[in-house]
Computed example of a mutant assay.
Amino acid sequence: MRFSLITLGVACVGFGVLPGMFVRDVASPLASILLHPNAYARAVFADGGAVPALHLTFTYLQVSDLLTALVEIVLGLLLAAAYLRLKVEPRPLTWLRRLHTGSVNDYAAFAVTGLVTVSVVLLV
């Protein structure tokens, strides 16, 4: 299990530091498929044509991205400080602690639940 976590960590750092190859070879074709579903369906089911390829760019050190990251870090630290000062833990957190067994599946379930929640909030 330790090896898989190390591999996952190295892959995350690698994708974050050197995204060019991943963006070019994986993300661009997948984005093309999502943005041109009819061309994808035609390519797969009918004539075997090519799916239109998109050119995606990735920028490091863009001011808006850096400011967003800074705001998120500051808000996270403020939230952590507020939580540490609480005398009584909120009920939802107590419920989650009871639910958590320490399994990797718990972390996956929490991550998926968070993604679904954020998606629903952003769509509404």
Rank of each mutant, 00 (worst) to 15 (best):
F22H: 08
H100Q: 09
L67T: 01
A46Y: 01
A43M: 08
T101W: 03
L99I: 00
L56S: 00
L75G: 01
D106Y: 02
L96G: 01
V17D: 04
F58A: 12
V74K: 00
L122I: 01
S32K: 07
A31I: 08
A109Y: 13
D106L: 02
V88L: 15
P19N: 09
N105C: 08
D25E: 02
I73W: 00
G49Y: 07
N38D: 14
V104N: 14
L70I: 05
A27K: 09
S103T: 10
P90C: 13
A69W: 08
A27C: 12
R91Y: 02
F3L: 06
G16I: 01
C12I: 11
V104Y: 12
V17F: 11
L84S: 10
V121I: 06
R42K: 08
P90Q: 12
R98S: 10
D65L: 05
V116H: 08
N105F: 12
G9C: 14
S32H: 07
P29T: 06
E72Q: 10
L93R: 06
L77P: 00
V120I: 15
F22G: 06
D47S: 06
E89W: 11
A46M: 11
T101N: 04
A53V: 07
L34A: 09
L18Q: 09
T59E: 13
Y83Q: 03
A41P: 02
V116M: 07
T68K: 11
V13P: 05
T117Y: 05
P52E: 03
V120W: 12
A43F: 07
H55C: 03
G102Y: 10
L96A: 14
F22E: 02
A27W: 01
I33T: 07
